[in-house]
Amino acid sequence: MIAFTVNGTEQQVEVSPDTPLLWVLRERLGLAGSKFGCGEGLCGACTVHIDGVPQRSCITPVGDVQGKQVLTIEGIPENHPVKKAWLAQEVSQCGYCQPGQIMSAVALLARKPKPSDDDIDRAMSGNLCRCGTYGRIRRAIHVASGHVARKGGPKP
């Protein structure tokens, strides 16, 4: 039995501890917002926060989160500045990568409220977007931080 907290709720799961956290969230806990893109830590679609740090849940054995706090896209409040900026900048296309992008962006802003373009490059380059929404993501992060974008994507 592995016990941990997800989005503020205590959870206990009976599952082999080497099962990646991603599949426990998606299949056992009904939290399908975190996505499977590569399974090898290469795309960031599965990004969640573990004790406040963004991690790739596809390569995190659930046994490792015993007693820890997990935050997923479903736990980000509707009025969060990152979500509002994502809507205002109309970032999403197919949308598949966006939960992971948002989790990385939320973590970046928590650590660095006014990130530079280089900060964004560093924090966000682990998140792939096949639809190519990077310009808008950059802009949305600047908007969410209250910063004026310097090299952001086009404004809708």
Binding site: G33, I73, E74, E78, K83, L87, E90, S92, G95, P99
Partner: peptide
């Protein structure tokens, strides 16, 4: 430039793939 109708579902994890 109207906002996309599918955006809200795509940023809160409820969009069903």
């Amino acid at each position: 430039p109207l906002h996309r109708l599918d955006s809200p579902a795509k940023i809160n994890g409820t969009a069903l793939f």
